[in-house]
């Protein structure tokens, strides 16, 4: 059942594709993080309109399946006037917008966990809202929610498998192409699964270790 020479041949090809997957995921997480901060801040804003906008963002981007979001951005936007975008761009935009919604909720929990007294002291010392957000709230929210953010990274890497649908040469697409030509479905897809495990299992381990450490230290 296993064709060793073929395996050795496919391995480096998938290794290259792994790079693409990680690149796309990391870029999306990075962009999504900053969008997420904005949405979380909106959700916690004293202005009702901002709160509702933030809530609407989360409702839309968590309610619609990622696949549909991806198709929307790749197929619809170019026809709505936006210039034709490469699969890579569409993928990153779509993943970023989607994970921003989840990150916003994670960070919101972090923001709410910061003792109010610290912000009172900051306000009294003269820091304005932007300074408080950047210097005090975000650093602490990230520290408090790091395990959740790592989990989000894992989810993002798994979700990135969908970009294969718009033709981006990520892990999944590459494996599909290989399987289409050599018909060794089990072998190729098991190898594919193995690669995902290679990234995600260490990440999950790191996340749970971090969680245990944070619980012990009391942040």
């Amino acid at each position: 059942m296993f064709d060793w020479p073929l395996l050795q041949q496919n391995f480096p090809l998938l290794l290259g594709a792994l790079l693409t997957t990680v690149e796309v995921s990391a870029a999306s997480l990075f962009i999504g993080f900053f969008i997420g901060i904005g949405v979380a801040a909106m959700r916690l804003s004293p202005t009702p309109l901002l709160r509702r906008l933030g809530g609407a963002y989360i409702f839309v981007f968590r309610g619609i399946p990622l696949l549909v979001q991806l198709l929307f951005i790749y197929y619809f936007l170019p026809r709505a006037g936006l210039p034709n975008m490469s699969p890579m761009t569409a993928a990153i935009i779509s993943l970023a917008l989607c994970c921003a919604a989840y990150i916003a909720e994670i960070l919101r929990g972090g923001f709410l966990a910061i003792p109010g007294g610290q912000l009172e002291a900051a306000g009294l010392l003269g820091l304005n809202a932007r300074q408080m957000l950047v210097r005090i709230r975000v650093p602490q929210a990230v520290r408090l929610t790091l395990p959740g953010l790592i989990n989000e990274m894992i989810l993002l890497i798994k979700a990135s498998s969908l970009v294969s649908v718009v033709g981006l040469a990520d892990l999944t697409r590459t494996a599909q192409n290989l399987a289409a030509s050599d018909y060794m479905f089990v072998q190729d897809y098991l190898l594919l699964a193995g690669f995902y495990c290679l990234i995600n299992i260490p990440l999950a381990y790191a996340g749970s270790r971090l969680e245990k450490r944070l619980k012990g230290r009391g942040a």
Partner: peptide, 22 residues
Amino acid sequence: QFNLWPHMTALGNVTEALQQVR
């Protein structure tokens, strides 16, 4: 409750407003 910012050192806590506000 002191309300120090836990992610900054003692020095950091004192310099924060001096740098950001003053």
